[in-house]
Design a binder for these strands. Structure first.
Length: 279
DNA sequence: AAATGAACCTGTTTGC
DNA sequence: TGCAAACAGGTTCATT
């Protein structure tokens, strides 16, 4: 379900729900076999704690408390939603009961039909530090941070022989780019998805960095893409799917040159591109 | 070391 | 209509 823009929207939605630093009253786990077994007893250390903030790193969400973080990943089909008691749905795996002040309570549900998602606990950090976790430590730069710049990208990929599409989706190169946005970024950059990293020039790198940021930012500004069932934590749908230039457009005319958009499969994932505009 | 493909799951769409 | 195959926003792991 989510690439960076969608996870960012969920993050912002949770942040607005957590205004006033609600307290985690109780976790109710309905099953523990997601992609990895959920460390339930560790996560329960957070019961009774105030939520001090919500952060996104790559496609991971981190709920911050004094005693550590709740880490969640939405996999392909995960979601967080407000679910008042009585609203139980198939594939809800966790309910979090929150208390604001003394009276009002709120319940959040984590739902994930395919169970590719992750729930985990992350140790608290020293002030100003960065949360350390086996799933976070190897990650490359955030696309909007300074560390992601043309010279970095070029250096990182100049000796790689795999296709640029796969490299762009490699989280150790840059985080947040998934299957949909990779096609959109490459189209706007004029780079063929099968081009090897070794064949990416300095000019291409500049274009790729610029277009990565541009596409992801525009998607965030549209509230993300809702092509199947994605909604943010407040139930709102995104609309960036209306702005796709190539994704899902097989055999439709290229919006720039009119040639037909092609679909190929790379590492088992669909890629859409224009063979005239992208070289 | 780096590239490739399989694996993890369920639900929905597509094609015969 | 029915059923099987293909496909879906992600990531890790084992194998070349």
């Amino acid at each position: 379900m989510p690439e960076l823009p969608e996870v960012e929207m969920v993050c912002r939605g949770l942040r607005s729900l957590f205004k006033g630093s609600p307290r985690i009253d109780r976790f109710e786990f309905l099953r523990e076999d997601l992609r990895f077994p959920i460390p339930i007893s560790k996560i329960k250390r957070l019961e009774g704690e105030k939520i001090l903030g919500v952060h996104r790193r790559s496609k991971y969400l981190l709920w911050e408390t004094k005693k550590g973080f709740l880490l969640s990943h939405l996999g392909m089909t995960g979601s967080w939603r407000v679910a008042p008691p009585g609203e139980e749905r198939t594939h809800d795996h966790l309910y979090v009961y929150l208390k604001k002040g003394t009276s009002s309570t709120m319940r959040l549900a984590y739902k994930d039909p395919r169970r590719f998602g992750i729930l985990d606990y992350v140790e608290p950090i020293v002030p100003g530090g960065i949360p350390s976790h086996v799933l976070l430590d190897h990650l490359g730069p955030e696309p909007f941070q300074e560390g992601f710049h043309p010279a970095y990208l070029r250096e990182k990929i100049k000796s790689r022989t795999s296709p640029i599409k796969n490299i762009l989706m490699d989280a150790s190169v840059v985080v947040g780019v998934g299957n949909i946005y990779a096609s959109e970024i490459l189209f706007r950059s004029g780079v063929h998805p099968r081009r090897k990293g070794i064949k990416i020039t300095q000019k291409d790198s500049e274009e790729l960095v610029r277009r990565t940021r541009e596409v992801l930012q525009e998607a965030i500004d549209s509230g993300g893409s809702s092509i199947r069932d994605y909604v943010n934590a407040n139930g709102a749908e995104g609309s960036y799917q209306m702005k796709f230039l190539v994704y899902g457009k097989e055999k439709k005319p290229c919006p720039v040159c009119g040639n037909l958009i092609q679909k190929i499969v790379q590492s088992g994932r669909s890629t859409f591109f224009c063979s005239h505009c992208q070289t």
